[in-house]
Design a protein around this nucleic acid. Structure first.
Lengths: 201, 201
DNA sequence: CGAGGTTCTTGTCAGTGTCAAGATAAAAAT
DNA sequence: ATTTTTATCTTGACACTGACAAGAACCTCG
């Protein structure tokens, strides 16, 4: 009963169940959502018994925490990807980060919900703690580059980007969704522009 | 169908199990959250058997839909309460509505999550459909009073208020929470002011 | 070859949502 | 007033879930 990979010899029963469970967990999350998320279903997806995940992630909270951590990495990557393509000035970079924020929520709505609207991931444990803080510090840095350390400016930009992302990801804001991707990007950028701190003197 | 208006005499085994289950459901939601929400636990709270709720709400989605509908009523009431105490001009009214939006999220975070971050309520059924649409039309009306029908203006105000509410309700935005209620209100109002459409010419 | 430890399976338990069937009480019909 | 009907609630069952315990399969290292 070999589940062998083509190129490398199988080292354990499964090879790398840890990674396989993460992938299966993401698929389960995307297809079933958080509320129907089932550890046993994840195990079935990975082709192992229902108790196999326990040794790698402890319990379901452990797996969800790991998935959320992976989510925050992708979340940051989505912002970086947009920023790489944007102009180099702080304002353009901030707007690009916001667009990446929205990109991520639309591309992975269930993961987004797990990260921002669920009690189940345990944020006090690594790697969730470090990755989520890294995402927050990235935002802080972007605002600092705009010349502000005012918590109000941070809150304004974060909340606006987050509100757009959350409402879009959950299917509200249909008027905005009806637009094509480019027009939607323009609208999101226009909204974000309004909350940016006033340009430097 | 009677919607329980001042009914004095006890009519059935329990009197008014429909209302009792709604109250028990809200308590369960507040104490356990959506993700640990249990229909059997709600039945226990109300002192009835585990299958009693089925006849009144069908299944767990039915009860959650009813709770979400009640939530949207309270949600609108929270905005109205703020607006009643605010000046009568459209801008003050809009800011007050936003403050009410945040009030509600902070007062009933689990209900807020059920309404905006859950797949389980069925929005296509009444009374959820009508109450949630009423809340949306209230927002539209407020923006219209500002002299705009641009979907972008609606989206901007909604998303910003929603983002602040969601992040506050889920314990992020600690800097804003650290402020007292009045200072927090002032900060929220300041952020909302930024996204309002330009004052009419 | 064999001891030790990790990885995974099997089996079990309490708990959940939903369905079916029966019991109970109110309401309606005669 | 008595019977029938209907709505309300209970009991019991089933499949499913997350967690735990004990054992089997496997790799590593002596």
């Amino acid at each position: 009963m070999t589940e062998t990979d083509a190129d490398s010899r199988p080292r354990y029963h499964h090879g790398d169940l840890h990674a396989a469970l993460l992938a299966a967990g993401e698929a389960e999350l995307a297809e079933a959502g958080i509320e129907a998320f089932s550890l046993r279903s994840v195990a079935r997806r990975a082709g192992v018994s229902h108790a196999a995940p326990a040794h790698h992630f402890g319990d379901v909270q452990g797996l969800l925490s790991a998935l959320a951590a992976e989510g925050f990495r992708l979340f940051l990557a989505a912002q970086m990807a947009r920023q790489k393509q944007a102009a180099d000035d702080p304002r353009s970079q901030m707007l690009a980060a916001g667009l990446g924020y929205v990109d991520f929520a639309l591309a992975r709505p269930a993961l987004f919900r797990l990260m921002f609207s669920s009690d189940r991931p345990v944020f006090e444990t690594d790697p969730l703690c470090s990755t989520s803080e890294a995402a927050f510090r990235h935002l802080e840095g972007g605002v600092a580059a705009l010349g502000s350390k005012d918590p109000l400016d941070i809150a304004a930009i974060w909340a606006t980007a987050h509100g757009i992302a959350d409402l879009l990801a959950s299917g509200r804001l249909k008027p905005l969704m009806a637009l094509g991707p480019q027009a939607r990007d323009a609208a999101v950028a226009e909204i974000l522009r309004r909350v940016l701190p006033a340009p430097s003197p």
